[in-house]
Write a protein that binds this DNA or RNA. Sequence first.
DNA 1: AGGTCGTTTCAATAGTTCAATAAATATTGT
DNA 2: ACAATATTTATTGAACTATTGAAACGACCT
Lengths: 124, 124
Amino acid sequence: MEKITATTIFESLSSGVRLDVYRLLVKKGAEGMVAGEIGSSLDVPPANLSFHLKTLTHAGLITVCQEGRFQRYRANLPLMMELIGYLTEACCNGNPAQCGDFSSQTLCPQSIDTQSVMNSKPTA
Amino acid sequence: MEKITATTIFESLSSGVRLDVYRLLVKKGAEGMVAGEIGSSLDVPPANLSFHLKTLTHAGLITVCQEGRFQRYRANLPLMMELIGYLTEACCNGNPAQCGDFSSQTLCPQSIDTQSVMNSKPTA
DNA sequence: AGGTCGTTTCAATAGTTCAATAAATATTGT
DNA sequence: ACAATATTTATTGAACTATTGAAACGACCT
């Protein structure tokens, strides 16, 4: 996956409206929803919804099919899977065993050598 | 997970610089990197890097520990796992069997037969 | 053809973000 | 305390994003 693809996806989901739309479509699965349904479900005015649907579509996160005068939208789950793979690529330098330790280390309380800390001056 | 948390995370990763930083830290795993290392690895000026590190930290995607005059940053992988769970929550209305069909349906080229379209109502 | 419905585009406004500079802060070693 | 290094903060202006109503477009039905 190219970087520009990933950032475009993240940018798409950085809006509350678009996040709601995407999650709603994920929930609906292969059935998808037409624009009007989405709009009434989430209470978003047509023009605004259209704007956000266009953004999501452009990012590839959702797809659209014309059904007569309706536009049916569906979530593109494979792209999300690809994105996750991109993010966790070469995770922990290829030592997945380390990954399990993350939860205890992200707060980084004791990860610093005790002696070094002890010898350092306190915040005067 | 709250919506605002998710959108903040996505917004954080919508910048190419921040995406690079995050992926670099994911690669480094529990070891992490100090700000200077990150900056020289990615060739980002200090002030700009600091701005992006702050954004990522605020979103909770990375954590920071002080080590003397160095700031060591680490990726917060558990949060990413939580985010993925939030996105795929109630996927396909709880029918995971449908999820496998996504790849063939997202492109929706012939998935909708012309005749069906002609006769079908939107909400099925 | 004419009327209606679903959806998108347009234009204007308001608010927000980004990167670069320069200055400030915090920590270390002398 | 002083100088040097590492990092953060503040400021600036240009560029971008979100929202809305009105208008336009395309597809359906009679």
